[in-house]
Design a protein around this nucleic acid. Sequence first.
DNA 1: TGACAGTGGGAAACCGGTTTCCTATAATAA
DNA 2: TTATTATAGGAAACCGGTTTCCCACTGTCA
Lengths: 345, 345
Amino acid sequence: MAATIDEVAKRAGVSKATVSRVLNDSKPVREETRQRVMKAIRELDFKPNPAARSLVYKKSRTIGVVVTDIANLFVSVLVKGIEEVAYSKGYNIIISNSHGSAKKEFELLTMLKDKRVDGIVFLTSNLLDEHKRFFKYVDLPIALVNVSCNQENVIGIMINNYRAAYDMTSYFLQKGHTRVGMIRASFLDQLTGRDRFVGYWQALKDHGIKYDESLVKEGSLETMDGYLVTRELLQETTDLEALFVACDLMAFGAIKAIIDHGLRVPEDIEVAGFDDVPMASFYHPALTTVRQPIEDMGRFASNNLIDLIEGEIIVKWEQILPHEIVYRDSTNGHLSNKGEEIIRC
Amino acid sequence: MAATIDEVAKRAGVSKATVSRVLNDSKPVREETRQRVMKAIRELDFKPNPAARSLVYKKSRTIGVVVTDIANLFVSVLVKGIEEVAYSKGYNIIISNSHGSAKKEFELLTMLKDKRVDGIVFLTSNLLDEHKRFFKYVDLPIALVNVSCNQENVIGIMINNYRAAYDMTSYFLQKGHTRVGMIRASFLDQLTGRDRFVGYWQALKDHGIKYDESLVKEGSLETMDGYLVTRELLQETTDLEALFVACDLMAFGAIKAIIDHGLRVPEDIEVAGFDDVPMASFYHPALTTVRQPIEDMGRFASNNLIDLIEGEIIVKWEQILPHEIVYRDSTNGHLSNKGEEIIRC
DNA sequence: TGACAGTGGGAAACCGGTTTCCTATAATAA
DNA sequence: TTATTATAGGAAACCGGTTTCCCACTGTCA
């Protein structure tokens, strides 16, 4: 259907080698000839077949993206950033969902390797040693989001999760709360989950508050789980003053659970989330949260990965992006209490 | 790096034609030979190069997905459905965002054609005649979501938007409300937007309520716009009793605006949305809404498109999926008032 | 005028598969 | 035993590009 280089060559009265030269200006071509070729290309609406090109170049100009669940707000915003940069650099992305299963993740990584993608952006909720071994096996440039992995050809993009959690918890403590709970990511989630939990733990310690295990619950990263787990927490505890939730989606569920339990946010219990997904400011009450530059994280992942693919020299194998804390109604605004306020960290 | 068919052939002591035959069992091969080849394939971890294959088959086993904004909840859930089916059938999807701009849409459709995708799933907020002409030009199987287009090689997947809007509006009217407003999709959005508006309009008419233009506002499909537009509406109107919003994301913004305006939902104003995005049941108050089977719509789009690509006979060029109405707190439950209740339509 | 370098462009090899065409051998029929 | 027919599998063409290799032609210098 589509025109081939041979047809262009014939129409322009040259060999296909010449057409190729014009296409990529890889070798000087006489101006008059170039014009003839260009004309033929235009007239036939010729576009080189990417499969044929990949075959010679041994590059597919495609990057694979493995995520836990594209329907998750954090993930889809991330993908948006990835896509934007990839597209602008002439790469395509192919997306696949692992549903958080490590088995599926390996399956997908293998599939992508077999599809000959040039590199992979990988978002997992739990980086295992097995993953690291696998990275060596697939032998492709890889960009990890939210995790780092000190390994050849693997770059990491993240924020300082520890610091963010520490600051958010400290904020509660500085307001004088002593019963501050946390909904953290379930145990499997080692990476960001652990850092955020440790930040919480350390802040308590530094403020001389004893860590109380009964105020900490674990959930997967979904709204439903935030709801269920918080309901449990409320049934077991009566003096909770503030709750730090490890991601916004769970925080929405947590707030809902608190209200359904007959308490008010922030009057009875203050709640803070993590991520600043697009909905956070429109939830009622508007959610105080740690703003991750999610879309930027996607852009960076894409950008650095493509640099790596194209053989640029990588100086920063680990990229820590700045985060902000956004104070909104769910914690009754900032200390100074002037409505939404953003603190850059 | 990766093994080629020649290496496999050499190792198995056969010609590459034979390896290919074993790979695709396209012609009988002696069992003993097949075993030898299989062994070589296993030992070299050989996977046929998809670029080389595409070149011969003139098929890329890739489908392009053009959406307005992947970070939108409706869209990402849709993509999830698309991906699931495509993956299970051995297709990859490549995603691109149009940001709702028709110019970008044409650019992307062209790009996908040039990339030699086998078909395209297309989600637009506004189907123009120019699009239809373009479909002819790209000459590829196309699946449209939320729109139909009576044209060769173009299939449509949608729900009965008119009916859903009609039912939802009637519900308000049956409760005795007479001042029922609507936030509809902005004018550009002809397709689903129009059907939903006409459903609202017709329901009013059938219940003998005069259509009042001042109760209808338009917004893009984002939360922020729902907020802004509702705020305007509230400033201009004092006797609003119920509000039907054309999509959940805008409905969240609308509820927020009502509360910020000092009124209560549902006590003062009842609000209903459209879509049933994952967050709807966890918003506070939980949102009454039309449940579109979004993920299923994605699955159907993917499935039917692949059938079309593979030359199956298509009987239903237009697929109307069933919708449901989910009654939740934002309208104070169903007529019978028994909490969340789902009516299948 | 002849030797030599520089330049434009064609022929052919190549990328890694699939498929057509054909031959050698085994199996069957006469 | 010979003629005929299947069957397995090799050689080569092909898909649509890029790149190497080489040659013809032009312009420069001796």
